[in-house]
Simulated assay, not measured.
Amino acid sequence: MSGLSEKAAASRAALEGLLARAEPGRVAVAWTGGKDSTVALALWREVLESRGLGPLRALNLDTGLKFPEIIAFRDRLAREWGLELTIVRPEVDLSSYPVARDKVACCRDLKIAPLSRALREADIAVLITGLRGDEHAARAGLPFLEERPDPPHLRANPLADWTEMDIWAHILERGLPYCDLYLQGYRSLGCMPCTHLPTDPADERSGRDQDKEQHMAELRSLGYF
């Protein structure tokens, strides 16, 4: 546990450094309602509370295809933690949109484009993510800070060197809340059409649509986190 304590301390210290780059009101957490981004949100919350600062801002991408359990968890925690929550939705008609037919186009239209719009409209200078370098080859070697061009902003990845086991150990140690879907066996949560129970115990993301997983590097280049 000492190793995890050191990781958590290092992540908090890195997040504290963001305060020299932007006012708290221009920093937001890309909070999906999943386990990783909830830990990132909790760490940023600790940093702000230790300094008596606020607001605690979060952006949530609601594609209209999320699990009801995720939406319920999001809304409950937002109330309990007093989040300044911006819910970002795509400007497409899902009743006629070819959901998940072309995975790159779907993620671009339902996630990447709405996120870019929200970052501009909310004037976000730093976006904190829950990305981990070990969960996908396209995220290996993930740095703490990434400069992103559209719109210009910094991505901060405080969990870059954490593992899935680290995440769960921290959640249990701190008594952090998490979505009930994890109790049903899910390990990585996305939109319903592209998420199912894992098929490989050794692969955390084996429950994600593998066609999309093969395009992760391309999606990240477009702004996907």
Rank of each mutant, 00 (worst) to 15 (best):
Pro198His: 11
Ala202Val: 00
Val104Pro: 00
Asp102Gln: 12
Ala8Phe: 03
Gln214Val: 02
Ala9Asp: 13
Leu94Gly: 06
Arg132Ala: 07
Tyr178Ile: 03
Ala137Ile: 06
Thr163Phe: 12
Asp75Phe: 04
Asp62Ile: 09
Pro55Gly: 08
Ala137Asp: 14
Ala10Thr: 01
Ala22Gly: 10
Glu46Ile: 04
Ala20Pro: 00
Glu46Met: 03
His136Pro: 02
Gln184Val: 01
Gly82Thr: 09
Leu94Gln: 10
Glu16Gln: 14
Glu218His: 03
Ser95Leu: 15
Asp109Leu: 04
Val88Ile: 11
Ser50Glu: 15
Leu77Val: 14
Asp123His: 13
Ala122Glu: 15
Leu131Gln: 14
Phe67His: 03
Asp203Asn: 13
Gly223Ala: 12
His136Ala: 13
Asp93Ile: 04
Val39His: 04
Ser11Ile: 09
Phe225Ile: 07
Glu23Val: 01
Leu56Gly: 08
Ala125Trp: 06
Glu69Tyr: 01
Pro158Gln: 12
Pro149His: 06
Ile128Gly: 05
Ala22Val: 06
Asp36Leu: 12
Arg220Leu: 15
Leu94Ser: 07
Gly54Arg: 09
Ala58Cys: 11
Lys35Cys: 01
Ser95Tyr: 07
Leu15Val: 06
Ala30Ile: 01
Pro149Asp: 10
Asp102Trp: 08
Cys194Ala: 06
Ala202Tyr: 01
Leu41Asp: 05
Ser2Ala: 14
Thr195Glu: 14
Asp211Ser: 05
Lys66His: 10
Glu84Phe: 04
Arg208Glu: 13
Thr38Met: 10
His196Met: 10
Tyr224Asn: 04
Ala40Asn: 11
Gly223His: 05
Glu121Pro: 00
Phe144Cys: 05
Pro114Lys: 15
Leu4Cys: 04
Pro98Glu: 14
Asp203Cys: 12
Asp102Thr: 02
Ala113Thr: 10
Ala78Trp: 02
Asp209Pro: 08
Val99Thr: 04
Ala8Arg: 13
Lys35Val: 12
Pro149Ile: 11
Pro158Phe: 07
Ala20Asn: 07
Leu197Pro: 02
Leu154Val: 02
Arg187Asp: 09
Asp102Cys: 11
Met216Trp: 00
His196Lys: 12
Met192Leu: 12
Leu48Trp: 07
